[in-house]
Design a protein around this nucleic acid. Sequence first.
DNA 1: TGCGCGGATATGAACGATCAAATACGGTGT
DNA 2: ACACCGTATTTGATCGTTCATATCCGCGCA
Lengths: 341, 341
Amino acid sequence: MTARRPRERGVTIEDVARAAGVSRQTISNALNAPHRLKAETLERVSAMIENLGYRPDQSARSLKSGTRRIIAYPTPVDDPANPNPLMGGFLEAVVAASGEAGYRVLLVRPRPGQSQEQALDELIAARTVDGFLLSDILRDDPRVAHLTGAGFPFAAFGRTGPEQPQSWVDVDSVQAMIELVGMVAARGHRRVAFLASSSGQPWMDDRRAGFLAGVRRHGLAGQLYSPGDDPGEIVAATCELLAGRDRPTAIVAGGDWLALGIYTAARAEGLEIGTELAVVAFDDLPIAAFLQPALTTVRLPLRRIADALISRLLQIIEDGVTPQAGLILPGELVIRPSLGP
Amino acid sequence: MTARRPRERGVTIEDVARAAGVSRQTISNALNAPHRLKAETLERVSAMIENLGYRPDQSARSLKSGTRRIIAYPTPVDDPANPNPLMGGFLEAVVAASGEAGYRVLLVRPRPGQSQEQALDELIAARTVDGFLLSDILRDDPRVAHLTGAGFPFAAFGRTGPEQPQSWVDVDSVQAMIELVGMVAARGHRRVAFLASSSGQPWMDDRRAGFLAGVRRHGLAGQLYSPGDDPGEIVAATCELLAGRDRPTAIVAGGDWLALGIYTAARAEGLEIGTELAVVAFDDLPIAAFLQPALTTVRLPLRRIADALISRLLQIIEDGVTPQAGLILPGELVIRPSLGP
DNA sequence: TGCGCGGATATGAACGATCAAATACGGTGT
DNA sequence: ACACCGTATTTGATCGTTCATATCCGCGCA
């Protein structure tokens, strides 16, 4: 531990009070309960606050009030081999949503050698944050279990177990996938393949289930394929798939990244995407719009998800009210040329 | 403003002191200056701390010490049309680096209707953070000017002006680009094109300058092209480029995303990448490895950059020492099949 | 005149930690 | 026996805010 140089202190409530010729409490009231002040005093005091650029010290306020106005977001480890589709856009949406509610987002990650639970405990015990925002919820997610046990506020992007707090928000992947398959069926495709790594993430299972449901509903011939995460593998698997005799005329990918491999394979096989082969995927990452032809996919309503998560979390933090049921939001089909005419 | 329900208070230093039969200060010393305690006392006290799960309240500690152990990172607005290559990996590296130094990262973004400077001021005045980490530094970046004026600690990923604090770290894009062009030249290419949007970002200018320097040094015929950000435009521009009579045999892209468009165009023109057309780019985003054939590119040493930034920032915060000169780190060539044999 | 009343403002006491200074405690040397 | 010293531990004050309570003041009313 190095020596710590205390930062210069700023303008305090005392300074403002002296300058305005009133007491501390009057300044505090001007900010927290303006109705208590005589209009004239309020104006004079507010001017002085503005004038001196006074802002209540967050630490002092927190110490007294017990609230931090900070939400922790444990960042998913971003595996370059399997880039997390959410990282970019979701974080973006969360920062915006919480910012508008007057909260800030603190990124946290276990130190080397520290378990996820320990990292959470550290923040709870040190009273650094008011609550947690979790994403990439696994089945029996240990973080959810831990926070539930500790009785600490959290909200989750992804479903939690039935015996746990239902403070989650999720996308109706099954329904979105059914609609996606519906679009494919409406274009006259009969043989459809689903491609996704079989990594056992709940959301991917939902997408797979949605595909199967869609295929059944529309009487299509659907087949599942699960290549590994390696790009080469994906291309190879797709090539094989497309070289077969009864090759599918449409491919549904579990995520936009996979579509990149599918495009590559299709071209290697001499198939034109959109006309000879329909490709659709899920997530609407930037790459979906960048691919040529642009990719038909399902857009996650990230901003609405973030808004709902923050709103639920703040309800727990500020009012102590835990939502009785999870919230399921629809995905939005984004039709682009890769689906065909 | 909704009513605020104070969170239940946790274990305090007083509780531990009473339980261990010593005074507050002894507990404090056990954590902050263990050498002051008799070995026996230390052991007994530490056991009790562990036992009760005591962690000093961060707000109380901050109030007294004036230090927050939090670094603010103003998140660049992520334009989906021009996805920020850094957002993912850089943030990741920053969180890891600061975590190891015992600091946390707070994401901030101006509220609607608030200027960037106001957002910074708010954090400074409320003493919420100890310093700022800036990225995507523009020429005459207003944030740098503002923090310099306020005398508040910051470190920047990207060069700052000569009259400003030199607490920056940057990648030697020029040199990396020269080496990249060198690799292309060594493969026997004579006509080389550089593709990048002309958006005037300093880092892109460096890459362009590096390209020109490399071309000059190796006596190649180099040409600059600046399509817009739109994927369709990129493909169209590349197609035109490749359809010309004296078409380049190698294309250098300003960023990995552009390579996607180039791949598409090359295939449309019937050119095989790696053999008939060399493609190289910059950033080593996940997409570089996903493309088939995989893309030769320049990897930014994100972890080293983050480490250096954090180390410099903490030096300013903790020791009050501002670095005298910026730090330039080399990019790392990642040779992959798109360059050719 | 004195009293009660209510709105506006002021005062004292936390919140939980750390810093600086004070004290307790053995052991030496004379 | 006593001053002296260094180490181990305790005490008091403080950081800047907010909560609960106290005071002030003008006014209507008996």
